[in-house]
Design a protein around this nucleic acid. Structure first.
Length: 485
RNA sequence: GGCGACAUAGCCAAGUGGUAAGGCAGAGGACUGCAAAUCCUUUACUCCCCGGUUCGAAUCCGGGUGUCGCCUCCA
C-alpha cells in the first residue's frame, strides 16, 4: 500500500509502527460554528482511509480532536453573549449531526482541548525546561531557531519564511517566527492556572499533547487540510519532537482545498457554505459521493450542476444494487451452490482492481470508477442468460451483492438496509405506511386503465406523480415505483 | 517577494514511458402502448504551447503561457 507523505513529497510503502495496527490522528474542527464544506472533505476522506485500512485487516485506532478553546470561539461567544465553552460544546453536538449525515463513523476518541490542560501545561513546561521555549510576561513562546528540523514538513527554510513575512513583528519574540505555546489571559477570557499565570493554550500545542497522549510518539498517520501544513503541522512537529526527542508521526497526509464556483471559500467573498446548507439541497450520500469522486490531493470545486451530475451517477449505482436485490429476492436460496463463473470471475477481477486503486494512495476516484464497472457488469448479467443453473446464478448474484456491500463499506456512498425513499421518512410526512398504501392504490388503478389501453389516464397519473417526485417504471413483471430526493 | 501545485473531450475525472478508465451531458439502436430503468454502439488521430531526451511521452527534461494555493485565522 502506497501513501503520499507530505514529509518526503513522494509516495511511500506504508509500513505501520506495529504490524497489523494503525494509529492515526486527524485535526478536527474548531467548534465555533456549524461545519462548512471545507471541513467536510478531510472528515469524509480520512473516514474513508480509516474504513479502507480496516477493510485491509488493520486494527485502526482513530483519534479526531475538537478544538474547543480558541480565539475564534471567544470572539463568537462574545458576539452572541454565550459562555465560550458552552458555545463550543453546542457546536460539537452540531458537528455530529452533520458528520452522521455524511455517514462518517465516530472516531475511537474525540478529545477536547478543555479536558487536556494538564497534558498541555506539562508539555509546555517540558519545552521550557529543555530550553526550547521562553517565558515573556505570562506568555510562553517556542523558539524555532533551537529546533534543527524546523521547516522540514513545509519544505522551506526560516530564511524563506522571513523573506515573505507579512506579520507584524512582536518585539518581545526572539525570532519573528517564534509562536505561542501559552497565551496569558486578558480580563474576561477563559483562563486556566499555569506556572506562568492564568492563560490558555496556543493553537498548535493541543494537537501535539493529545496525539502524544493517545497515540504515543512515531504514530502512523497524521492528517488534515493542505493549509495546515504550515504553520500548524510544522509547529506540531517542532514541539513534539523537541519535547520527546522522538519522531512525531510517520506519514503526513493532506487533502486539497475546496472551492465554490471556482473561488476559494472565504468570509470576505461571502461564499462560506455550511454543510447543512448543501444538505438542504442534496442528499448527504450525494455530497459524500461527490467528495470522493476526485482524488483527495486535487482541488475540488462545488457547484449545483456538478452535484446534480454526481446525483445522477450515484443513482445509477443505487439502481443497479436495487435491481440486484430484486433479482435475489425472487430466487430460492441454495447455499453451497457454486457461483456462475460467467459473473463470478469478473467479480474477482473487480475486487482486486478496487484494492489496487485504494492501495495506490487511496485513489477513491478510480475506485468509484470500478463501482460503476460493477454496476454495468451486474446489469448486463441480469439481462442476458449465461446458461447456468438457477442456483449458480443466485449464488453469483449474492456474491455480487457482497461485493457491492464491501465497496460501500469502504466508500460509504449509499445507505443500506433502510428506506431510501426520502418522501417516506422526511419530517412532517405523517404516516409513511399510509402514503405507501395510497401510492400502491394509485398504481393499481393505473394498471386497470392500462389494461383498457386508456393511455391518456395512465400517462396523466404517471406525469402527475412525477411532479410529486414519485417515479413509476413499467416493467414486464409489474410496476416499480420510487421516490426521488 | 519567497515556496509549491495543477493544466486530459461540452462538463467532471482517472491515468506518471508503450497505441487515452469511469461518470454526467449528446447521438443512433434494442426493449416499451409511449416513457422510465437497463443493455449495445457512438463522442479526445490526442492529453495548454514550443523545444529536447527516447525505438516510443499525456506521462521524463528545459523554456513559455494560464489557473490556483501557502507564506496571516482557516480543512
Amino acid at each position: 500500500m502506497l501513501i503520499y507523505n507530505t514529509l518526503t513529497r513522494r509516495k511511500e510503502e506504508f509500513v505501520p509502527r506495529e504490524p497489523g495496527k494503525v494509529a492515526m490522528y486527524v485535526c478536527g474542527p474548531t467548534t465555533y460554528n456549524y461545519i462548512h464544506l471545507g471541513n467536510a472533505r478531510p472528515i469524509v476522506f480520512f473516514d474513508t482511509v480509516r474504513r479502507y485500512l480496516k477493510y485491509r485487516g488493520y486494527n485502526v485506532f482513530y483519534v479526531q480532536n475538537f478544538t474547543d478553546i480558541d480565539d475564534k470561539i471567544i470572539n463568537r461567544a462574545r458576539e452572541v453573549g454565550e459562555e465560550p465553552l458552552n458555545l463550543a460544546a453546542r457546536f460539537v453536538n452540531e458537528y455530529f449531526k452533520d458528520a452522521d449525515a455524511l455517514n462518517v463513523l465516530r472516531a475511537d476518541i474525540h478529545p477536547k482541548v478543555s479536558r487536556h490542560l494538564d497534558e498541555i501545561i506539562n508539555m509546555v513546561q517540558a519545552l521550557v525546561d529543555k530550553g526550547y521555549a521562553y517565558v515573556v510576561d505570562g506568555d510562553v513562546y517556542y523558539e524555532v531557531r533551537k529546533f534543527d528540523g524546523y521547516g522540514k514538513l513545509s519544505g522551506r527554510t526560516l530564511e524563506d519564511m522571513q523573506a515573505g513575512a507579512r506579520v507584524d513583528v512582536d518585539v518581545r519574540k526572539r525570532d519573528p517566527m517564534d509562536f505561542a505555546l501559552w497565551k496569558s489571559a486578558k480580563p474576561g477570557e477563559p483562563a486556566w492556572d499555569s506556572p506562568w499565570g492564568k492563560g490558555r493554550p496556543g493553537w498548535h500545542i493541543e494537537c501535539s499533547a493529545m496525539a502524544l497522549k493517545y497515540l504515543g510518539t512515531n504514530f502512523d498517520i497524521h492528517g488534515g487540510g493542505f493549509d495546515l501544513i504550515f504553520p500548524h503541522h510544522e509547529n506540531e512537529i517542532a514541539q513534539s519532537e523537541a519535547a520527546t526527542g522522538e519522531p512525531f508521526a510517520r506519514y503526513w497526509m493532506h487533502n486539497g482545498f475546496i472551492t465554490v464556483n471556482q473561488e476559494k471559500m472565504s468570509k470576505s467573498l461571502g461564499n462560506f457554505f455550511l454543510v447543512r446548507e448543501i444538505l438542504a439541497k442534496f442528499q448527504p450520500e450525494v455530497v459524500r459521493f461527490y467528495l470522493l469522486s476526485t482524488h483527495y490531493r486535487s482541488p475540488l470545486d462545488f457547484d449545483d450542476e456538478k452535484l446534480t451530475a454526481a446525483a445522477r451517477g450515484l443513482e445509477r449505482i443505487k439502481t443497479s444494487l436495487g435491481l440486484l436485490e430484486e433479482a435475489i429476492a425472487g430466487q430460492e436460496g441454495d447455499a453451497g451452490a457454486r457461483p456462475d463463473p460467467a459473473l463470478s470471475l469478473r467479480l474477482d477481477e473487480l475486487r482486486s482492481e478496487f484494492e489496487r486503486a485504494m492501495d495506490d494512495d487511496f485513489n477513491t476516484a478510480l475506485a468509484i470508477g470500478i463501482v460503476f464497472d460493477l454496476a454495468r457488469e451486474v446489469n448486463t448479467y441480469l439481462q442476458k442468460d449465461s446458461g447456468a443453473g438457477a442456483a449458480e446464478k443466485g449464488a453469483a448474484l449474492k456474491k455480487a451483492r457482497d461485493l457491492f456491500k464491501d465497496f460501500n463499506g469502504v466508500l460509504g456512498i449509499f445507505k443500506t438496509g433502510e428506506n431510501s425513499n426520502i418522501l417516506l421518512r422526511g419530517p412532517g410526512r405523517g404516516d409513511a405506511g399510509l402514503v405507501e398504501d395510497l401510492i400502491n392504490l394509485i398504481v393499481e388503478i393505473r394498471q386497470e386503465a392500462r389494461k383498457k389501453k386508456d393511455w391518456t389516464t395512465a400517462d396523466r397519473i404517471r406525469d402527475r406523480l412525477k411532479e410529486m417526485n414519485i417515479i413509476l417504471e413499467d416493467t414486464p413483471t409489474g410496476v416499480r415505483w420510487k421516490t426521488q430526493g
